[in-house]
């Protein structure tokens, strides 16, 4: 059963094609990784799927419904949640409040009721706090709950974003480099966390540079280079694909060469 299907997605920035003709699908309970050299268009692809950028070409479907170009909050209502490569934490709020804010769709109500502090409002806040504390425990941040988010380390902020994304109870979770800047122990923890999230039936879409992590937990890998899909398949098959090897090593060798020439 396909949850997400991306068809021929493309976007240009000032006449330069950033992503073109990319398509793949994601299913509940499975982890799809998008890999590729720097500048291959991975984050741009994520931004189009999550409604941050409006694609110029192609379609995004959720449950078969065309959701191309829907605002991020409308996509959130349909069960899409994400984290950000360059962190978008609510830095002036407490760690607990960050995760509570993630449960907005479940807890939102009339603003008038919230102003008056009606019992219904207080009940929703209590339920949200309970859910948020459980999620903080899950990502190992329960002891930092009352601290201001800006006081956390980079690795902790990465986990905080995952907890906030999970608070929305997503069906499709987009993780943009969740292990970037994390030490090997933290990477191991995030690795186990992502596998557990998928095991609960969430479709996970992952952009990651850590190849070991990608090869270990992915069910399916999509490889981008210069904005186009050059390969996809099972992790072992993709790793042996000559085009993939060339995209990674070739780019590397090319850079070496230009250094030598320069």
């Amino acid at each position: 059963m396909t949850l997400l299907s991306v068809e021929g997605l493309g976007i240009d920035f000032g006449g330069v094609t950033a992503v073109d003709g990319v398509g793949f699908t994601a299913e509940p309970g499975r982890i799809v990784s998008v890999i590729g050299p720097n500048g291959a268009g991975k984050t741009t692809l994520f931004n189009m799927i999550s409604g941050v950028y409006l694609p110029h070409r192609g379609r995004v479907r959720l449950d078969g419904e065309d959701v191309t170009g829907l605002a991020p909050n409308r996509l959130a209502e349909r069960g899409l949640s994400r984290t950000f490569q360059n962190l978008q934490v609510f830095l002036r709020m407490s760690v607990l409040d960050n995760v509570m804010a993630g449960r907005h769709l479940a807890e939102r109500g009339s603003t008038l009721a919230d102003l008056l502090g009606l019992p219904s409002t207080r009940r929703r806040s209590r339920e949200t706090e309970r859910a948020a504390r459980a999620l903080l425990e899950r990502v190992g941040l329960e002891r930092a709950a009352e601290r201001e988010a800006s006081a956390l380390s980079y690795g902790a902020l990465k986990r905080l974003e995952i907890a906030r994304a999970l608070a929305a109870r997503p069906r499709l979770l987009l993780l943009d480099e969740p292990a970037a800047g994390c030490n090997p122990v933290e990477t191991e923890e995030i690795d186990a966390l992502i596998a557990a999230i998928a095991a609960e039936g969430v479709a996970v879409l992952l952009v990651e540079h850590d190849m070991k992590l990608v090869m270990k937990i992915s069910h399916h890998v999509v490889v981008l280079d210069h904005g186009e899909k050059i390969a996809e398949g099972a992790p072992e098959a993709v790793a042996r694909d000559p085009k993939v090897v060339e995209a990674y090593l070739g780019a590397h060798a090319g850079r070496e060469g230009s250094h030598a020439l320069g």
Partner: peptide, 27 residues
């Protein structure tokens, strides 16, 4: 009352990051 209510959290979240507030569903 508003500050620590669901609406208050939505307001404070869009203050810090509009794009993140949108992705958790805040209009």
């Amino acid at each position: 009352n508003l500050k620590d209510s669901p609406s208050g959290r939505a307001l404070r979240s869009l203050h810090d990051s509009e794009v993140a507030a949108r992705t958790v569903g805040v209009d």
